[in-house]
Computed example of a mutant assay.
Amino acid sequence: MQSQEKQLVQDFFESAFYKDETVISKYLHPDVTMYWNSSFGFLKLNQSDFIKLASEMKKSYEALTCEITHLLQDNNKITIRFTYHANTIEHPEDDRALAHFICIWEIKDEKLYEGYIISQPGDDSFENISSFIPKK
Protein backbone atom coordinates (compact mmCIF):
# COMPACT_ATOMS: atom_id res chain seq x y z
CA MET A 1 0.00 0.00 0.00
CA GLN A 2 1.39 3.36 -1.05
CA SER A 3 1.58 6.20 1.48
CA GLN A 4 -0.53 9.31 1.12
CA GLU A 5 2.61 11.43 0.56
CA LYS A 6 3.93 9.21 -2.23
CA GLN A 7 0.50 9.16 -3.85
CA LEU A 8 0.38 12.97 -3.70
CA VAL A 9 3.69 13.31 -5.56
CA GLN A 10 2.77 10.66 -8.11
CA ASP A 11 -0.65 12.19 -8.73
CA PHE A 12 0.84 15.65 -9.25
CA PHE A 13 3.35 14.57 -11.89
CA GLU A 14 0.78 12.37 -13.64
CA SER A 15 -1.81 15.19 -13.65
CA ALA A 16 -2.51 17.67 -16.43
CA PHE A 17 -1.31 20.58 -14.26
CA TYR A 18 0.04 22.34 -17.34
CA LYS A 19 -3.49 22.53 -18.81
CA ASP A 20 -5.38 23.64 -15.70
CA GLU A 21 -4.05 26.18 -13.20
CA THR A 22 -6.49 25.00 -10.51
CA VAL A 23 -4.75 21.61 -10.43
CA ILE A 24 -1.52 23.33 -9.37
CA SER A 25 -3.08 24.88 -6.27
CA LYS A 26 -4.53 21.48 -5.35
CA TYR A 27 -1.02 19.97 -5.08
CA LEU A 28 1.41 22.82 -4.38
CA HIS A 29 1.56 24.54 -1.00
CA PRO A 30 0.87 28.30 -1.26
CA ASP A 31 4.42 28.91 0.06
CA VAL A 32 6.07 26.33 -2.20
CA THR A 33 9.67 26.84 -3.28
CA MET A 34 11.29 24.84 -6.07
CA TYR A 35 15.05 24.80 -6.58
CA TRP A 36 15.53 23.52 -10.12
CA ASN A 37 18.85 22.69 -11.75
CA SER A 38 18.12 22.17 -15.43
CA SER A 39 20.14 22.00 -18.62
CA PHE A 40 19.23 25.69 -19.05
CA GLY A 41 20.57 26.71 -15.64
CA PHE A 42 19.23 27.24 -12.14
CA LEU A 43 15.69 28.37 -11.39
CA LYS A 44 14.08 29.21 -8.07
CA LEU A 45 10.31 29.12 -8.43
CA ASN A 46 7.36 29.93 -6.20
CA GLN A 47 3.77 28.94 -6.96
CA SER A 48 3.15 31.99 -9.16
CA ASP A 49 6.33 31.33 -11.16
CA PHE A 50 5.33 27.71 -11.66
CA ILE A 51 1.85 28.71 -12.86
CA LYS A 52 3.48 30.97 -15.48
CA LEU A 53 5.78 28.12 -16.55
CA ALA A 54 2.84 25.72 -16.81
CA SER A 55 0.92 28.26 -18.89
CA GLU A 56 3.81 28.34 -21.38
CA MET A 57 3.90 24.52 -21.43
CA LYS A 58 0.20 24.48 -22.33
CA LYS A 59 1.03 26.40 -25.52
CA SER A 60 3.62 23.82 -26.61
CA TYR A 61 2.39 20.38 -25.55
CA GLU A 62 -0.69 18.49 -26.63
CA ALA A 63 0.04 15.86 -23.98
CA LEU A 64 2.65 14.97 -21.35
CA THR A 65 2.99 11.43 -20.08
CA CYS A 66 4.93 10.73 -16.90
CA GLU A 67 6.85 7.44 -16.77
CA ILE A 68 7.92 6.88 -13.15
CA THR A 69 10.79 4.52 -12.36
CA HIS A 70 11.40 5.31 -8.67
CA LEU A 71 9.22 6.64 -5.88
CA LEU A 72 10.88 6.57 -2.45
CA GLN A 73 9.98 7.97 0.96
CA ASP A 74 11.95 9.05 4.02
CA ASN A 75 9.59 10.54 6.61
CA ASN A 76 7.95 13.59 4.96
CA LYS A 77 10.38 13.65 2.01
CA ILE A 78 9.54 11.91 -1.26
CA THR A 79 12.02 11.24 -4.06
CA ILE A 80 10.73 10.57 -7.56
CA ARG A 81 12.62 9.68 -10.75
CA PHE A 82 10.69 9.93 -13.99
CA THR A 83 10.71 10.84 -17.66
CA TYR A 84 8.18 13.10 -19.33
CA HIS A 85 7.19 12.01 -22.81
CA ALA A 86 5.59 14.78 -24.85
CA ASN A 87 3.37 15.22 -27.85
CA THR A 88 3.94 18.71 -29.20
CA ILE A 89 1.26 20.89 -30.75
CA GLU A 90 3.19 20.74 -34.04
CA HIS A 91 3.49 16.92 -34.02
CA PRO A 92 0.70 15.52 -31.82
CA GLU A 93 1.19 11.97 -33.13
CA ASP A 94 4.91 11.92 -32.24
CA ASP A 95 5.62 10.86 -28.64
CA ARG A 96 9.18 11.78 -27.57
CA ALA A 97 11.17 11.68 -24.36
CA LEU A 98 11.12 15.34 -23.37
CA ALA A 99 13.19 15.29 -20.17
CA HIS A 100 14.41 13.09 -17.33
CA PHE A 101 13.86 14.27 -13.75
CA ILE A 102 14.82 13.47 -10.20
CA CYS A 103 12.94 15.44 -7.55
CA ILE A 104 13.03 15.45 -3.78
CA TRP A 105 9.91 16.92 -2.22
CA GLU A 106 9.16 17.91 1.35
CA ILE A 107 5.47 17.55 2.14
CA LYS A 108 3.79 20.08 4.45
CA ASP A 109 0.07 20.43 5.17
CA GLU A 110 -0.57 17.56 2.71
CA LYS A 111 0.94 19.53 -0.20
CA LEU A 112 4.27 19.78 -2.02
CA TYR A 113 6.18 22.39 -0.04
CA GLU A 114 9.88 22.42 -0.92
CA GLY A 115 11.31 20.73 -3.99
CA TYR A 116 14.81 20.07 -5.27
CA ILE A 117 14.69 19.20 -8.96
CA ILE A 118 17.35 18.07 -11.40
CA SER A 119 16.49 17.59 -15.06
CA GLN A 120 18.19 16.96 -18.36
CA PRO A 121 16.94 16.65 -21.92
CA GLY A 122 15.26 13.37 -22.76
CA ASP A 123 16.74 10.73 -25.00
CA ASP A 124 15.78 7.27 -26.13
CA SER A 125 19.17 5.60 -25.67
CA PHE A 126 19.12 1.90 -24.88
CA GLU A 127 20.67 2.48 -21.45
CA ASN A 128 17.98 4.96 -20.57
CA ILE A 129 15.14 2.83 -21.89
CA SER A 130 16.51 -0.26 -20.17
CA SER A 131 16.45 1.56 -16.83
CA PHE A 132 12.64 1.34 -17.04
CA ILE A 133 12.74 -2.44 -17.37
CA PRO A 134 12.52 -4.19 -13.99
CA LYS A 135 15.67 -6.12 -13.06
CA LYS A 136 15.29 -9.84 -12.35
Rank of each mutant, 00 (worst) to 15 (best):
L64G: 05
F82R: 07
L43T: 14
N46S: 09
I24T: 05
L53K: 15
Y61N: 00
T79F: 14
P30D: 04
D49W: 01
S55G: 14
M57N: 11
N37L: 13
D95A: 01
S55Y: 11
H91W: 07
I107F: 04
H70E: 11
T65H: 12
F101I: 03
L28C: 07
E93N: 09
T22W: 05
C103M: 12
T88V: 00
I80E: 04
N75P: 05
S25P: 11
N46E: 08
L45C: 13
S39Y: 07
H85S: 08
T83A: 09
E62M: 04
F82W: 07
I78V: 14
L98R: 00
A63K: 08
S48F: 08
S38A: 01
A54C: 15
T65I: 12
E90C: 01
H29Q: 01
L98Y: 01
F50R: 06
F101Q: 02
T33K: 11
S39G: 08
E106P: 06
L64H: 02
M57F: 10
E106S: 09
H85E: 11
M57Q: 14
R81C: 13
L72T: 07
V23N: 03
T83H: 03
E56G: 12
T88C: 00
H29F: 02
L45R: 14
I102F: 06
T88K: 01
L71C: 05
E90R: 02
I104T: 12
N46W: 06
A97H: 00
K44F: 07
E90L: 03
I68P: 03
D95V: 00
T83Y: 02
L64D: 03
E106R: 08
P92I: 03
L43Q: 15
H85R: 12
N75V: 08
E21A: 14
K59V: 10
Y84N: 07
H91M: 09
Q73I: 02
L53S: 15
T33L: 09
L45A: 13
F50G: 06
W36I: 06
T69S: 12
L71M: 07
Y27E: 05
F40R: 15
N76P: 04
Y35N: 15
P92H: 03
D74E: 15
H85M: 08
A99G: 01
N37Y: 13
W36T: 04
N37Q: 14
I68Q: 03
E106Q: 13
D74M: 12
A86Y: 00
P92V: 03
H29G: 01
P30Y: 02
S38V: 01
K52W: 12
N46P: 06
N46L: 07
V32Q: 04
H29P: 02
I80Q: 04
H100Q: 12
K59C: 10
L72K: 04
T69I: 11
I104N: 10
T88L: 00
F101A: 03
D49Q: 03
